[in-house]
């Protein structure tokens, strides 16, 4: 048992690119669900359209890198508007169903054999991230013993955390304004907001677009860091990981999703390393009968789920949340 090794694995993930992807996606969900009460279960869809928005113009259409970036930012806006028009006038649950279905449809279309010429099928697309990697100012990676990142990851993490900081700053500035007050009021009771002369639909649309763009940034960042876009990266589980991160940190709090994402990956990666060590070797700490090495990598998800349940029971507002102001009522 090497605690140092476990800590190193946990910290490197918690402060590395994985956590950044989750943090960006969760910031978007915070705008949707935490502040506005929009139940978006398809954040993966916003991520995937941004990732393919980056890759397709560069790889397939031979356009310059900047064109890819512009498309990556534009596609989530288009998706939000297309999704919002039919669903935002309906009750919240309809948006949840529509978004999760859309995200799955997108993933299947991106991975389909028929569309392989455009989206690259299940292998996805590669070979567009060179300009991003060329900008890397670092000569080598970083290894502080307890925390290590490769040269590429260090560059990605630098850009990523700046992105997270800027997004958080924007959310903070918006949510302390009267605009943010309208969103929070819509979360509480949209009829009341309507009765005071506010165009609820327009605000919900703005929130959906803003959170969708944050989700898009998550997808864009993932695509840049991996230098490949693969449809299987945008399954529903990424959406629910982001929700988990949001709930751990505390919904409707500016830094809730960021801290939540860090804790989520710290736990997931730390537990993974712990069980991997405990079940490997000639004489494992946990005997083969109880848990095999293959099972070990999955047990961590069970434990994270368990932790989430306990959190919801004993601290439903998350770590930062104000108990009096949680979006989820026990009732």
């Amino acid at each position: 048992m090497d605690l140092f090794e476990i800590l190193r694995a946990a910290l490197s993930q918690a402060l590395g690119p994985q956590a950044i992807v989750l943090a960006l996606a969760a910031i978007g969900l915070n705008v949707h669900f935490g502040y506005t009460g929009l139940l978006n279960f398809g954040q993966a869809g916003f991520m995937s359209v941004a990732a393919y928005g980056l890759a397709v113009p560069i790889v397939i259409m031979d356009l310059p890198f900047v064109a890819g970036l512009v498309m990556a930012l534009l596609m989530p806006v288009v998706l939000a508007v297309v999704l919002g028009f039919p669903t935002l006038r309906l009750r919240a649950d309809y948006l949840a169903i529509a978004t999760i279905a859309t995200a799955e449809i997108l993933r299947l279309v991106f991975g389909s054999v028929e569309m392989r010429d455009i989206f690259g099928g299940s292998n996805g697309l590669t070979g567009y991230a060179r300009p991003f990697q060329d900008l890397n100012p670092y000569g080598s990676g970083i290894d502080l013993g307890i925390f290590a990142l490769s040269r590429n990851d260090l560059w990605a993490a630098t850009v990523g955390w700046i992105l997270v900081a800027l997004c958080s700053l924007l959310v903070w500035a918006l949510m302390r304004s009267p605009w943010g007050r309208v969103l929070r009021s819509i979360r509480e009771d949209e009829q009341a907001v309507r009765s005071l002369g506010k165009n609820v639909f327009a605000y919900k649309m703005q929130a959906l677009v803003l959170g969708g763009v944050f989700g898009g940034l998550a997808g864009l960042f993932l695509a840049l860091r991996q230098a490949s876009v693969v449809p299987s990266d945008y399954g529903t589980n990424i959406t629910f990981f982001a929700y988990t991160a949001l709930l751990i940190g505390g919904a409707a709090r500016v830094l809730g999703p960021v801290v939540g994402a860090i804790i989520f990956w710290f736990l997931l990666s730390g537990l993974g390393a712990l069980f991997s060590q405990a079940t490997s070797g000639a004489n494992p700490l946990i005997p083969e009968v109880i848990m095999s090495n293959q099972q070990a990598s999955l047990v961590r998800f069970i434990l994270v789920g368990l932790a989430l349940m306990l959190l919801m029971i004993f601290r439903p507002q998350g770590i930062f949340g104000d108990r009096r102001e949680i979006a989820i009522d026990g009732r």
Partner: peptide, 30 residues
Amino acid sequence: KVLAKLTVIENMRLGATGQKGERFWSAVFP
């Protein structure tokens, strides 16, 4: 229909019409 998770004064402020800060881009600049 009070907005339960907003304070009383925030409930009141919401009622005012024609608020410049309720527009997305202006909201960023206090």
